[in-house]
Write a protein that binds this DNA or RNA. Structure first.
Length: 683
DNA sequence: AACTCTCTCGCCCTCTGCTGGATTTGT
DNA sequence: AACAAATCCAGCAGAGGGCGAGAGAGTT
């Protein structure tokens, strides 16, 4: 027995596998014991009356759609499809012809006078997904102005001696018990049919709600085809994909004979089509491509394939240079690129697509369906490509390589972004609409806006004054206005500074506190950084201070400022230019290595040592063995301007330097004055 | 049997947006 | 130096566009 579950919403435009309906001369009714019995025809009114009073059990019993006339030798192809309806179309239909109406609680009303209508109803108001309609002879039966599930009962002549019967079961929320009952029925049927040696076919149709909270319903189409093949039980190979064979079914008319595939659910009224279909099960591919040795089932497929080798594309687009192998591809291309006709429309949003498969994929974004499960983790994807892409996270595969730096990426988009940001000159910039900030990535701009420009219900207080803001950006901008204020005033003198940490160090001048002690020589310092510089210079053998070399005379200097001065004396305009403000700017930006800063710090350290302190040696150790930079002299020659520059720079500016600067800016001279060997510091 | 039309699946692509670690900047 | 905030950046997933190609059905 074949059974397939079809998600209605996902298959809105997919006709569902039909089944031959061969009328019998009487109704067969399944009684409570699961036995099917012949049942006489009843009038529509009788049926209606019976169904009106019926319960869910009636659904189980009455859903066998009975052919219109026992005398007629007809067969019916039942197809399901979703179709949009209009109210006008609805009014045109004769709803009295046949109806099975499921009432609240799963009760089904049945009425049958021939081709007709079937729907499900829950309460007075039908919901979209719970509407079903049956139509006959390609007529559409609408229930409301929405898409309904349409069942076509396609009448056709049936060959002499053949009988058919349709059993359609519809139950909503029937639960496991009902399902089990149906399964039992289905299991009983083969035996019964075999015993009766009749050739009957059934379509067992179940409508079941989807997951809790989901609007989706599932149709379970069970093929109850019990047609015997020369009295042989039907053997269906397990590896046959029945769901696939259930697609692409069309209405068939005028056939005298029905051919049923014993491997899958395929049926056809034409022998040629049947033979054509059977080739799909044989893997017989006798048509060989002489170019690549690939084989095909049909000449047409081979020809299309060969066209891909030869580039033969007979169907050319009149609006562009594209050409295609088949006319269908051209039509589709024109829809995508030129006409923008999108016949497949989503019932839940405004999305429309050129192809049904795209709508099907889109609908999954509404239903949350994720049919493609990763075998390595819990991730499940809505389409195959995403799963394939996801699998790269497990395999580590990075198929995309930057052509410039050869960095590899798992996604093409990531590589493209990388190339744009790293190797492109005209990289896109995203200007913040609220401030002057320019950010290279749009997503980062969103973060910027979220963090800085989003209204905050809580008051954001300025840390320096009483101002209050509700946007971080405004707060930050405001606080910057306090930046150049020397907000920190010394209680003991007139010293003022911009940062608290400067004041902390300064206060130690008054208190004499030197909390940082060298573990090697017990020398004490007011600032941690001074201790660090000291330790490096006198106790760290691996310390290599930087040396600035004059490009003219190769003389080395321990500090940039000294070399600059030297360059001014040494001559060349180039050297002067290098020593000019430009050079200083460069230094302040980034080109001065940390080692250079260390030298400045060392000089400042000396400047900050207390009066009367002596250095261990007159000559300081200098790397490269080239210049014995006399740091003391350097410090003596430090100008006020230089210190101010350092101060402004702030980066690499040590506390000692700032203290020295503070002194130059008017600090009491005795604080900083000291003797250093035979020479005096200038301040 | 060959052909055409239609439907469907599968593949690959782009664009988009979120996330979290790394780095830079400000205090 | 330490910390926090801002920004940079790669990784990854969601959604959708476009096309190649196979298969069934109808027609010639």
């Amino acid at each position: 027995m074949a059974a397939t579950e079809i998600s209605v919403l996902s298959e809105q435009f997919t006709k569902i596998k039909e089944l031959e309906l061969m009328p019998e001369k009487g109704l067969k009714e399944e009684e409570e014991d699961g036995v099917y019995r012949e049942k006489d025809h009843r009038s529509p009114s009788e049926l209606e009356a019976e169904c009106t009073a019926g319960a869910l059990q009636d659904l189980e019993e009455e859903l066998e759609l009975v052919p219109v006339s026992s005398e007629e030798t007809e067969k019916h192809i039942l197809t399901l499809q979703m179709a949009p309806f209009t109210s006008e179309a609805f009014e045109l239909q004769d709803l009295s012809s046949l109806s099975l109406q499921q009432q609240e609680g799963g009760q089904v009303m049945g009425q049958q006078t021939g081709p007709g209508l079937l729907w499900l109803e829950e309460g007075p108001q039908q919901s979209l997904q719970q509407s079903l309609a049956i139509s006959d002879q390609e007529e559409l039966y609408s229930l409301q102005e929405m898409e309904v599930l349409q069942l076509h009962l396609l009448e056709d002549n049936v060959m002499a001696g053949e009988e058919s019967k349709l059993a359609a079961s519809l139950a909503e929320s029937a639960g496991l018990t009902k399902l089990q009952e149906r399964q039992e029925k289905e299991q009983l049927l083969p035996e019964r049919r075999l015993a009766e040696r009749t050739k009957e076919q059934f379509l067992h149709l179940e409508a079941m709600p989807g997951d809790k909270g989901s609007d989706e319903i599932f149709l379970k189409i069970s093929d109850l085809n019990m047609e015997e093949q020369k009295d042989q039980p039907i053997a269906v190979p397990a590896n046959v994909e029945k769901a696939k064979s259930a697609k692409n079914q069309r209405q068939t008319k005028g056939a005298k004979r029905t051919f049923c595939c014993d491997v899958c659910m395929f049926t056809s009224s034409r022998m040629s089509s049947f033979h054509h279909h059977m080739k799909t099960h044989t893997n017989e591919k006798t048509h060989l491509c002489h170019l690549c040795l690939k084989t095909f089932r049909t000449v047409t497929l081979l020809r299309n394939h060969v066209n891909t080798h030869t580039g033969t594309r007979p169907y050319k687009c009149s609006d562009c240079s594209m050409a295609f192998v088949t006319s269908g591809e051209l039509v589709r291309h024109r829809r995508y690129k030129h006409t923008h006709e999108k016949p497949f429309k989503c019932s839940m949003c405004k999305y429309a697509s050129v192809e049904a498969s795209k709508l099907k994929r889109h609908v999954r974004s509404h239903t949350g369906e994720r049919p493609f499960q990763c075998c390595e983790c819990s991730y499940a994807s809505r389409d195959t490509y995403k799963l394939k892409r996801h699998m790269r996270t497990h395999s580590g595969e990075k198929p995309y390589e930057c052509h410039v730096c050869h960095a590899r990426f798992s996604q093409s988009g990531t590589m493209k972004t990388h190339t744009q940001q790293k190797h492109s000159e005209d990289l896109p910039k995203h200007q913040c609409p609220h401030c002057a900030t320019i950010i290279t990535r749009k997503s980062d701009l969103r973060v910027h806006i979220r963090n800085l420009h989003t209204y905050s219900a809580a008051e954001l207080k300025c840390r320096y004054c009483s101002a209050v803001f509700h946007e971080r950006y405004a707060l930050i901008q405001h606080q910057k206005t306090h930046k150049n204020e020397k907000r920190f005033k010394c209680e003991h003198c007139s010293y003022a500074c911009k940062q608290a940490r400067y004041m902390t160090s300064h206060i130690r001048i008054h208190t004499g506190e030197k909390p940082f002690t060298c573990l090697s020589c017990n020398k004490c310092f007011r600032q941690k950084q001074l201790l660090k510089v000291h330790f490096r210079k006198y106790h760290d053998a691996s310390f290599i201070p930087a040396v600035y070399k004059c490009t003219k005379c190769d003389k080395g200097f321990s500090r940039w400022s000294n070399m600059r001065r030297h360059l001014e004396k040494c001559g060349s305009g180039q050297a002067k230019a290098a020593a000019s403000g430009q050079g200083r700017t460069r230094r302040r930006k980034q080109t001065v290595p940390k080692e250079a800063t260390r030298r400045d710090e060392a000089a400042a350290e000396e400047a900050s040592t207390t009066k009367g302190e002596q250095f261990p040696g007159e000559t300081l150790p200098v790397a490269c063995g080239e210049t014995t930079a006399r740091v003391k002299e350097d410090v003596d020659e430090v100008t006020c301007e230089m210190l101010l520059n350092m101060m402004d720079n702030s980066t690499g500016c040590t506390g000692a330097m700032m203290l020295a600067s503070a002194q130059l800016l008017g600090r009491p001279q005795e604080t900083y004055s000291r003797r250093r060997g035979s020479r005096r510091v200038i301040w």
